[in-house]
Design a protein around this nucleic acid. Structure first.
Lengths: 246, 246
DNA sequence: TTAATAGTGTCTATAAGACAATATATA
DNA sequence: TATATATTGTCTTATAGACACTATTAA
């Protein structure tokens, strides 16, 4: 921390908050799986090309509050209570010709249900982290999208639904579909089930009988995410280094 | 990105850059292993307590340049070319009573050799991410240290020496000692060797004979880090989710 | 019955954890 | 030789990947 400096003595940067809002799109007829997608703003005043939603941080405002403003102003989303996740800070002093501007790049995950009201468009993300359309966004926003995608993909390898994309009472097939959309690849149902089961809680009715839901075939068990299970710790534990000697 | 705003219209925050400089301390007589450690500034003007080194970002300056300044001014370290790693942004509007100030918290790893000239002190970090002394730093700097420790521990589970703490030509025992210091736990030599070997390159003399180095017992093979080996990709590959169906 | 989806049994390959043996230097 | 450190052999256990089978509903 700086101690001696007079806080007012030096020029200060503008600070913008840019957000990669992630969600999933359902499976299209042409796709093997659903797709991870990101919210992109339409053409904006004066500049050619599209960008992620963003805004300047105002005095007295936290980043979370700023993100709430962005989402409500630029995407019509109110009362988003998800915590934005910091990805990167863009600090090139000349990145914005209008003046010294830092950008705090964040990502945020919203379930598709929340995005129906969104005015901006959801754009599918390819497996390599680029936009499926090949579109180039302004500034380094393609890099933000790519990092956001890598980040959510990492999280979904650890737990069934860390970002809460599903509502409680999902089936194993729905969860598998979600994972396939997030990582963009088909998965094996048996291996998938065995990986996920320790972190899922089967729902039961008041009598303790298992709750099932049918969709044209054998009814499936419905689950909720289990956030306090012992094996959650085991999953999050590092397993790549040899353990300590006894 | 903000488009319409006049960049000069709103108040702008001070932006500080705080740095957790990480290194390792050799094994002490009382310890089973060496220790991860962080550079802490001495008592600073006016405020009771110690903190991580930090400084305000100046106009036209990148974060990397700012970090270089901090290290040279506050720790006597010149020409540090390591890239700082962003950990977190502190954004509470009232966290600094002197005015609206954001803090960009970073970590940076330096080999012990580089820190001999350091004016500030290296403080050991415990396994739980707290300082071993139990000392409380100013602001949220304990949290920065804890995140920095978790981050470097993660990286060292993936590769032999991702942050370059050792110089080329290290033995397996030296590498194991480094890992034990970083994670703060003893490791098994056989399992450790098998985990590390695919990502290490044995050094040879011009004739192709293996280079060895002795330290009181059987001479050991010396290695360099292998950053382009196929198995690096395999290690970094996600292995926690079932793979795709063929 | 058939079609559709859900769930299980089980084999194989890989790798970590653990213990013990063997190898090669110095004193 | 004894001692110290390095390196390898191998057994056990856990689990991902893969394939095939069984189970339960609706039409």
């Amino acid at each position: 921390m700086p101690w001696k400096s007079d806080l007012a003595r030096f020029p200060r940067p503008n600070v913008a908050v840019d957000i990669a809002v992630l969600s999933v799109l359902p499976q299209q007829p042409t796709d093997a799986t659903g797709s991870l997608a990101v919210l992109v703003e339409g053409e904006a005043g004066g500049l050619r090309g599209r960008a992620l939603p963003g805004r300047f941080l105002r005095e007295g405002q936290t980043i979370t509050a700023c993100v709430d403003d962005v989402l409500s102003i630029k995407a019509g989303l109110n009362n988003v209570s998800a915590e934005p996740r910091l990805l990167r800070v863009f600090d090139d002093p000349h990145r914005d010709p209008r003046g010294w501007t830092l950008s705090l790049a964040h990502s945020l995950t919203l379930p598709p249900r929340r995005l129906q009201e969104a005015t901006a468009g959801l754009v599918p993300i390819a497996t390599n982290g680029e936009l499926e359309s090949g579109e180039t966004l302004l500034f380094d926003h393609n890099a933000i999208v790519s990092e956001a995608a890598a980040s959510i993909r990492d999280r979904y390898e650890q737990l069934p639904d860390p970002d809460g994309l599903l509502e409680d009472g999902f089936t194993m097939a729905e969860l598998k579909g979600l994972h396939e959309a997030v990582i963009g690849e088909p998965l094996l149902k048996d291996t998938f089930r065995r990986r996920m089961e320790p972190n899922l809680q089967p729902l039961t009715d008041p009598d303790g009988a298992r709750l099932l839901r049918s969709d044209g075939g054998r009814p499936a068990q419905v689950f909720v995410h289990r956030r306090d299970h012992p094996s959650v710790a085991a999953l999050q534990r590092r397993v790549l280094l040899p353990r300590a000697a006894r």
